[in-house]
Design a binder for these strands. Structure first.
Lengths: 348, 348
DNA sequence: ATCCAAATTCAAAGCGCTTTGGCTTGATTG
DNA sequence: CAATCAAGCCAAAGCGCTTTGAATTTGGAT
């Protein structure tokens, strides 16, 4: 059923029917009611392409998802998408996803923008300094960055977690438990968020007078096996760390596995704090959390980014929106006082 | 730059320019070369909407992703998407994703189909018997099911892993190691694949003369905490199982965590076999696999499903395509002979 | 030189919607 | 009572492309 047929059927012009359905005021309520009823009963569905061509609006938001160096999609992605998708569904938008290798990114961004396939874009995984942002600004299409980049962060819209502060707090927390040999299992440090976390970690150490030791600071893709392997390395050292700060629950799980295999117990022999994006497939709603963590829901972030980009798409001249979220520090069972402390306490 | 401008610039008609760019034969090579060059230098990019309206083809494939009962996106999804996305990028297609609650599904499918927003659909997570398939058939839009459903599987296109056979083999493998008390950690059994796996498990037991025990067969969402909790339950039983067959590495990891926490060792005290979709965030390319597993790459499945749906979209009258993939049975370090066997061997 | 088919090119008609500008009413006003 | 006006509706012109059907050019065969 197309507009013409519907209008013929009603004995009205296409203009009037279109206006009736789109809520314009120049139509009598009486007519509008009739039109809506007829559209309903004949299940009229306007062609999205015709609509797009006529209006120039697509009601579609694009997500360009980069494959990591290991050809992998970030596992955090599916939860982000779940949140964003929920918002899109609620607001009547579609989500267009392009999976793209590093090399193809620019081409894809240009293509999406100049073909006007989307009303706006979400940028995933910003690098420390990210050339994509300059490109997008020049392309004159609204975009929201999940995370942010260090260059001119005032000039575009983003939503980020206060990674630095949460890692400062996490580090201080470990130090205050008496741990002084704290290892860092960070994400890849070409990523902006990972750099900020490292900075936070170093600040935290400094604030407690602990000298950083580069030999126990790692930067890897945040997957379980990497946590495992790094922890094995750490355990094999002459003086092993008494605490771990991890950038992802996946790394933390790998580390915990290695710790347990070595006959030790997380929280007793070695403390672990991790950042927790609340990945749904690792999340236990009932139990005491497995890990003490700086927590921030990536799903909520997805939801909010979606709302932001739609806001921007509807108000092209709006000032950029920037949101910095604080992570909660949530206690789990993976942390405890240093054994040194415990001993000296006993000695008293 | 629009077609009109480009053709004016070249002193040609829109027709000729359009044909030159789209590879039609009625254009001299000389002209085509000129046109292509001009298009390139002025970075002409045809409006996708105009194109869609004129041709009726969208070059877009839709994925309707259901949120599970716990509002969760299946974590296997991101790897499927990575594979599919790679194929789409290669073949010049876009990927449209709708995240949808159970209740909204029908509406969304209708909307996608009748609005002609996509040339075809991928159906995720088919239920044992799935009403969506009848709906889609009636909607007259090509679709490919990842997995399959029990009703009329010959009448539509699908790609599935031979879940039944792989679980028969896995069960027999465990039995042949001497294990007789084998627990099943299955996925939710309203899903088609989970039902087939259970059937395979039961067949496998029967073939080795082992009576099934419903009290050690579970059906849960396939996330890590569920594996952990179920394993704790199993360990607390008066006679605990000597082997576990799990439907996902996530469940297996949870189980392994519980086993280690109990001071036992997977592969020595309790054997674990799991199905392994090769989730990239759990995969270790170097090491000996952590788990003995029936393995089939969900990413390859995504890639292949994408190719299939494009093939179908281009040849609407083509017969359905059906592919049944066999999983490999890959040895890892989570399995070993039964302790009973070991003891009797020692006794000799 | 002439003619015909093949090779190129073009003008114009869609594709299905929105939106501009104008046309009828019937009611309101001076 | 004529002039004014708002309400409600419509015809037609886009949006930027593809594709049909016709016109023109070309090159070989006669």
């Amino acid at each position: 059923m197309k507009l013409k047929e519907l209008s013929d059927l009603l004995g009205l012009s296409q203009t009037t029917v279109s206006r009736a359905l789109n809520g314009y005021p120049e139509v009598s309520e009486e007519t509008r009611r009739k039109v809506k009823l007829a559209a309903e009963t004949h299940s009229y569905q306007p062609s999205s392409h015709a609509k797009r061509l006529a209006t120039g609006r697509t009601h579609t938001i694009g997500h360009v998802v980069p494959l990591s160096s290991h050809e992998m999609i970030n596992p955090h992605f599916s939860d982000f998408i779940a949140g964003a998708g929920e918002a899109y569904a609620r607001l009547g938008y579609d989500m267009l996803i392009s999976v793209v290798t590093e090399a193809d990114q620019e081409r894809v961004y240009r293509n999406l923008a100049s073909g006007r396939k989307v009303d706006g874009l979400i940028v995933h995984g910003p690098k420390a300094i990210d050339p994509r942002l300059a490109l997008l600004k020049s392309l004159d299409i609204p975009f929201v960055v999940h995370g942010r980049s260090d260059d001119a962060p005032d000039s575009y819209s983003w939503l980020d977690v206060n990674n630095r502060r949460s890692f400062v707090r996490a580090t201080q927390f470990l130090a205050d438990l008496g741990h002084s040999r704290i290892a860092l299992l960070n994400g890849l440090e070409d990523m902006n968020f990972a750099r900020r976390r490292r900075a936070g970690f170093l600040d935290g150490l400094a604030s407690r007078g602990i000298a950083p030791d580069p030999s126990i600071m790692f930067s890897d893709e945040m997957i379980e096996p990497n946590g495992y392997r790094r922890m094995q390395q750490l355990l094999a050292m002459p003086v092993r760390p008494d605490a771990i700060l991890a950038a992802s629950v996946l790394l933390a799980m790998g580390a915990a596995r290695a710790i347990q295999e070595a006959g030790l117990k997380p929280g007793r022999d070695i403390s672990i704090v991790t950042h927790d994006d609340q990945l749904s497939f690792l999340r236990d709603h009932n139990a005491v959390p497995m890990f003490t963590a700086t927590r921030s829901s990536i799903r909520d972030a997805g939801r909010r980014c979606a709302e932001m980009i739609i806001e921007l798409a509807n108000n092209p001249d709006r000032a950029p929106i920037q949101e910095l979220w604080e992570a909660e520090l949530v206690l789990g069972s993976s942390t405890g006082p240093s054994l040194h402390l415990a001993k000296s306490a006993k000695a008293l």
